[in-house]
């Protein structure tokens, strides 16, 4: 898992959900759900981003908070799938 991947994901969330480029607005371990950063359609957008920009298909059973709820979790999930 690279810093570049983490920053790409953080950049996407900052731009699309928090509407800022201030990195301090989103910690790498912050929960997107608990902080109310994404809504129901928002999660679909994150999945589109992972699939279209990062090239990783997300299966139904993978749509769980452990994989998607935060920058570090998404980065770890994507890195694992890219390595597989």
């Amino acid at each position: 898992m690279t810093d570049a991947l983490r920053e790409q994901i953080r950049g996407f969330i900052l731009e699309n959900y928090l509407f800022t480029d201030d990195k301090s607005a989103l910690g790498l371990d912050d929960s997107l759900l608990e902080r109310g950063i994404v809504d129901s359609t928002g999660m679909l957008e994150i999945i589109f981003f992972i699939e279209e920009q990062l090239g990783v298909k997300v299966k139904d059973e993978e749509m769980v908070p452990d994989n998607l709820d935060g920058v570090n979790k998404i980065a770890a999930f994507v890195a694992k799938r890219q390595a597989a």
């Binding site: 759900l33 059973e61 749509m63």
Partner: peptide, 9 residues
């Protein structure tokens, strides 16, 4: 959300 795990969301 199709799986039972989606309950978390």
């Amino acid at each position: 959300l199709t799986s039972a795990q989606s309950a978390a969301y």
